[in-house]
Design a protein around this nucleic acid. Sequence first.
DNA 1: AGCCAGGTTGCGG
DNA 2: CCGCAACATGGC
Length: 272
Amino acid sequence: MKTYQIPVPTFDLDHTLRCGQVFRWRESKDGWIDIVIKAKQEGDVLIVKSNLDMEDVMSYFRLSDDLDDIYKHISKDEVMNEAIARYRGMRLIRQEPWECLISYLCSINNRIPQIERMIQNLSTYFGEEICDGFYSFPSPERLAEATRSELEKCKLGFRVDWILGIAKKVCDGELILNQLRNLDYQNAKEMLMKIDGVGHKVADCVLLYSLDKLEAFPVDVHIRRLTQREYFQNQEVSDEIIREWAKGYFGDYAGYAQQYLFYYERSRGGKR
DNA sequence: AGCCAGGTTGCGG
DNA sequence: CCGCAACATGGC
């Protein structure tokens, strides 16, 4: 276990881990913990304990993203400015694509606590025990050799066959997720959407959260509700219209805008 | 009890 | 291209 103290100019660990993009981090008395990483923030310093190299930690938290420049690009209106003011320092996280894909398949027509439970179940049933009580996310190989009824124990619902199918594709080399990084956004999205169970939303999530496509703008119920209310005068417009609008309105960093708006919309509970 | 949740698919128009 | 229901699970 190595310890890093990383100076971070514009960064907020709490917002970054609470905004709904990752599903395995837990908050404890002394900071945050994932399977192999512990992290806490003291002022402008991020303190990390992990076996990872420093550069991997920097990469994971996207500490090289120029947030102030990104804010300049997406600060288009009062709604966006309010979201930025509230969550200043929130960064996207660069996730591992395989885990990201399965995680967002679990997100389909689901709630966050249950998504977290499914991922926890998958890990304890099919992952490897790293240290007592902590299990890694299962490998594609391990999931591909699982039976349907074994997977059903994880309470995945109708997602079981999709997940099995994807695991097999990855094992066969038919789907090489990291390769999609080399394609542009449109082409990578087309490839992802050939996968059974992957539509626009899941594809955009995987592209944004794990494949560095910052223009991806995942449209889910919350983003749809907020966008129609704040930008379309309560008109009902299709998701395709919303995606096209976001691309033109927010530009290359639409994905960052999406994350701020998503968190903003989800945490305005009760406030009309 | 019925509706909804970080949707997708397959169907009929 | 559009809208629509079904899909498994669980919380309110």
